[in-house]
Simulated scan of single mutants.
Amino acid sequence: MTVVDLTGNDFKKIYFPKYHEFQDVTEDMVKDAKHCSDTFHDFLVNNRFLSSVSCFRVYDNDLFSFYKQAERCLKSGRISSLDIYSQWVAICGSSMICYRFLTT
C-alpha cells in the first residue's frame, strides 16, 4: 500500500489489535497483537512518507510495547486486563492521532 491507498478504516482494520478493553490476556490476543505489530512495522519501514510522520512512529512503538507487555503477562500467568491497561491506553491514543491524520 502507498500512503494514498491507506485509509483510516484500513488502518483500523489491518493494524489495530482485536482486543477489547478489560478483556483478559489470551494467547490469541497476544498472537494478534504480534501480527499487528510486525505487519505495521514492516509497512512503516517501507513507506518513506508515513515513516517521516511522528504519530506513526509513536504508534509503532506503542503497538510493540502493548504486544510485549501482553506476551510477558501471559508467560508469567498474569492475565488480568489491568496488567496491560496502560499500554492499551497508549495505543488507543496514538492510533486516534494516526486515524485523524489519514482521514483529514
Rank of each mutant, 00 (worst) to 15 (best):
K13I: 10
S65P: 03
F40N: 12
F43E: 12
S54R: 12
K75Y: 01
F56V: 08
D62S: 14
L63E: 11
F56A: 10
I91L: 05
R72N: 14
L82M: 00
G77T: 03
A33H: 05
V3T: 10
F22E: 12
T26C: 07
L44W: 09
T2W: 00
L82P: 01
S54N: 15
A33Q: 11
W88A: 03
Q69G: 01
Y59L: 06
S81K: 01
D5G: 15
F64N: 14
R100K: 13
S81R: 00
S76W: 07
K34I: 03
A70Q: 08
L44S: 07
F56M: 10
K31Q: 14
N47A: 08
F56G: 09
F16W: 07
T39Q: 10
D38G: 02
S52T: 11
M29C: 10
S51C: 14
R72I: 07
K18M: 12
S76Q: 14
E71S: 15
L102W: 04
D83N: 00
N9F: 06
G8I: 04
D24K: 15
V45Q: 11
T39V: 13
V58T: 15
G77R: 00
Y67I: 09
H35L: 15
Q23P: 04
S95K: 02
T2N: 00
M29K: 06
F40G: 13
C55P: 02
I84N: 00
M29V: 14
K18G: 09
C55H: 07
S86P: 00
S95P: 05
H20K: 15
D28S: 13
D42R: 07
F16N: 08
Y15Q: 11
R48C: 04
D24F: 10
F49Y: 11
D60H: 09
S76A: 15
D83H: 01
K75P: 03
G8P: 03
F16P: 08
G93I: 04
R72G: 04
C55V: 15
K31W: 03
T103V: 13
S81D: 14
Q23A: 13
I84Y: 00
K68C: 02
S95L: 01
D28F: 04
R48W: 05
R48G: 05
H35D: 15
R78W: 01
C92D: 06
D10L: 15
E21L: 14
D62N: 15
Y85W: 01
L6Q: 03
K12F: 12
C36A: 01
R48S: 12
F56R: 06
V25E: 11
V3H: 07
C73K: 03
N46W: 04
C55I: 13
I14M: 13
F66D: 14
D42W: 02
D5L: 12
